[in-house]
């Protein structure tokens, strides 16, 4: 039996357990497994067949913040794959990712910022750099949390025009998007 079909069966077993189990704990564990597997491009074809991108997207609307965090992490790992990327964009899930920017969990927000950068393309660019998002990034770029600050700075410098940033800076005093809790406070 080839390594690939082994891998497929294993991943399939994970997806099946994820769908069948009633245990929240098992769900989190399996989701974490799948998200971590998404990091390795060698698993991409299997993960596509199993529609794991949709599984991750479903998690973004969960109440359980851990599921949201792991789902967003999985998307962040997966979305550099062109096929998954176009699927995510085509299913109109960009808003779900953007919503994660206002999560209280540090890793969720970080994954969302990175995923947005990775999901950017000619078709999605306007949505990804919409005024509220840019404004949010301006706030993040002033955060004490260095990881968040770095990512937001890259977002503003590499993906937004100067004008967009200027407009967002003017706006940012008006709106109050909460920063994620810094973990050490």
């Amino acid at each position: 039996v080839s390594a690939h079909s082994d891998r497929f069966q294993y991943l399939q077993a994970l997806v099946t357990e994820f769908q069948d189990t009633d245990s929240a704990e098992a769900k989190e564990q399996v989701l974490a497994n799948l998200a971590n597997f998404s990091y390795d491009p060698r698993n991409l074809s299997e993960l596509r067949r199993l529609q794991v991108a949709d599984l991750f997207l479903d998690m973004l609307t969960e109440d359980n913040e851990t599921l949201v965090e792991f789902g967003m992490g999985g998307l962040c790992n997966l979305c550099l794959d062109k096929v998954s990327k176009s699927h995510i964009l085509a299913s109109g899930a960009l808003n779900l990712v953007i919503n994660c920017l206002s999560s209280h969990r540090e890793e969720t927000v970080l994954s969302a910022v990175t995923a947005l950068m990775y999901l950017s393309c000619a078709a999605s660019h306007a949505d990804i750099t919409s005024a509220p998002v840019v404004e949010c990034m301006v706030r993040f770029s002033l955060s004490n949390n260095r990881r968040l600050r770095n990512l937001a700075t890259i977002f503003l410098e590499d993906y937004c025009s100067e004008q967009q940033v200027r407009e967002a800076q003017d706006l940012h005093t008006a709106l109050g998007i909460p920063l994620p809790h810094s973990t050490h406070t």
Binding site: E17, E28, V30, A32, A35, N36, Y39, F70, L110, L151
Partner: peptide
């Protein structure tokens, strides 16, 4: 994590955590 199902329990004990490029 000590409650993993056997088929997905690795050789080394690990916590439940998702690694991304950010981490």
């Amino acid at each position: 994590c000590d409650s993993r199902a056997k088929y997905r329990d690795g050789r080394r004990p690990r916590a439940v955590k998702v690694y991304t490029i950010n981490l």
